[in-house]
Design a binder for these strands. Sequence first.
DNA 1: GAAATATGTCAATATGGCTGACGTAAAAGG
DNA 2: CCTTTTACGTCAGCCATATTGACATATTTC
Lengths: 173, 173
Amino acid sequence: MDQALQSRAQGPKEAEASAPMFDLIELFFFAYRDFVGDADRLLEDIGFGRAHHRVLHFVNRQPGLMIAELLDILGITKQSLNRVLKELLDTGYVEARPGVTDRRQRLLFPTAKGRRLAMDLSDLQSRRFERALSELPKDAKLPAIDFLLAMIDPAQRDKVTSLVWGKPREEKI
Amino acid sequence: MDQALQSRAQGPKEAEASAPMFDLIELFFFAYRDFVGDADRLLEDIGFGRAHHRVLHFVNRQPGLMIAELLDILGITKQSLNRVLKELLDTGYVEARPGVTDRRQRLLFPTAKGRRLAMDLSDLQSRRFERALSELPKDAKLPAIDFLLAMIDPAQRDKVTSLVWGKPREEKI
DNA sequence: GAAATATGTCAATATGGCTGACGTAAAAGG
DNA sequence: CCTTTTACGTCAGCCATATTGACATATTTC
């Protein structure tokens, strides 16, 4: 076992199947678990789940989002989205306005209440990142971003980066 | 909005609530999604889900695991575990042997078939880490490990680190 | 012998997803 | 103008993963 683990200490170039990286696999699992746990606890008081969180988050981040765009980001079906979205609309966290140029569209906006909840959730999760980064060397944020980005399917990276940093889509509002 | 975002560019020290780190929040979400997606696709051919994966993974990593320990690691109830574990036992990926010193216990072991599947899954996920690390500066693995570890609840870190690196528990087999 | 422990099981419920089929209004293209 | 496509909603049924609560059984411990 020691032999296998230390076969070359880092060699994806050599074809001789390297040992699985149990450490990264398990740490990623536990880190994500705790990361989403923060939000889960805050949400359950209002009777919402992770699905509501994700919808509210992206609607807050991209006000004026179309249903189809949201479905694409979340990677779920419209039927799955529907129940959750309806609850967010009914409880006044999100509101839908018909598109101006295309009246078939329903553009989604966070209400003031929705923005507040979305910010509370983002702040909570940011606090975990801040605490984590404060335990690491001073410039640990950029490497972390690079690592997470590199973990994403190359084919999806453009979509993700433009969602995260680009295209504020003011033009659509 | 620009004002808020650039309030000091990085200041958890100053009490003036820093802007949420949307980039890390969203990248973590998408990275984890793609990470588990790899295994999901492999599992669905055999009719298993993520729950089966997690059970098999930890049983493979710690052969001789007790039910109670597994429940503690996974953080689920015994009722939730039961269906999944039963399927893994029935299909011959895991086997249970009564404890030698305490016959109430059911110690869980992967079968040869189970070890093979667990390894296929770990290899698949490791390949994603390898690809990601190969796109980054040469020593990006340790910072990644440190970052993920720092993201975990401090109170749970000992448990996690001993699970990941320590206590191979040979003594219990 | 009583109590605590390790585990199993039955039943009901919630949540978040899925597929398939069908409907409707608006836009786009001939 | 009329047909087709698009954007969306909805009904119905199904699956996977989790929950709580109650109760059962074997074994160990005190």
